[in-house]
Design a protein around this nucleic acid. Sequence first.
DNA 1: CAACGGACCTGCCTGC
DNA 2: TGCAGGCAGGTCCGTT
Length: 271
Amino acid sequence: MPELPEVETTLQGIRPHLVGQRITGLVVRDGRLRWPIPQDLGVQTQGLVLNRLSRRGKYILGQVGANTLLFHLGMSGSLRIVTPQSPPRKHDHYDFLFENGVCLRYHDPRRFGCLLAIEGEPFRHPLLRHLGPEPLEPGFDGRYLSERAQGRSQPIKAFLMDSKVVVGVGNIYANEALFLAGIHPNRAAGRISKARFEGLAHAIREVLSQAITMGGTTLRDFVNESGQPGYFSQTLRVYGRGGEPCRVCETTLKQRPLGQRATYWCPCCQH
DNA sequence: CAACGGACCTGCCTGC
DNA sequence: TGCAGGCAGGTCCGTT
């Protein structure tokens, strides 16, 4: 489910409720996530203040004392701000309780998300160490993409979804950015000109920024911290639109799995 | 190192 | 109505 815009929407939604607040407890109803929630996490965090919430790629990082909480939403996860009294639903895995009476509740049917604690410097952790640059920060541009793509035969779409190349671009926004840039998703990454990579970097930033502004994309179950869906779905240009007319040239959009993932493109606009 | 396939899960939709 | 099969926003891991 969540790509960078959905994670950013979640972060911005929960941050004002939680930063500076003391953790009074952790209730784990079902700790079976991608990796089990550490048994001692409640004891480890109780009484500590959540000093900072930030994002790295699709991870949310919470700084508590010398340690960092690592949240990931996987394919179907969502974090919501609720009251401790609100009855838990099926697949509500854990609650963080805070001194101000707020409860941070995690919901994840498919259990691909995680909740871990990192001791010391978080960016040396194996899950974070090899991550590529943030697409919305300086340093991410056409020149960078072009250099990383040198000699690679991989389809550009798979290249963009590689978090070692750039973080936060998942299946929806890879499809959308390639459409905006006019690049065929199956084109070998190493066979794209520097000029076209400039356009692609711009398209990636554009599509991610727009989606954040609209509160993310909700296909079936993404909800923000208040339980509301995102509205970027209405703006999707190709994702999920196989067989429908291109919004630019009205040619019928193609759809075909590419590297196990649903891929959509306009055969007229993308080469 | 690069590329690829399998694996991890549940829910929902389609078609028989 | 029931059931099998396919598919879904992520990403780690093992193999070639």
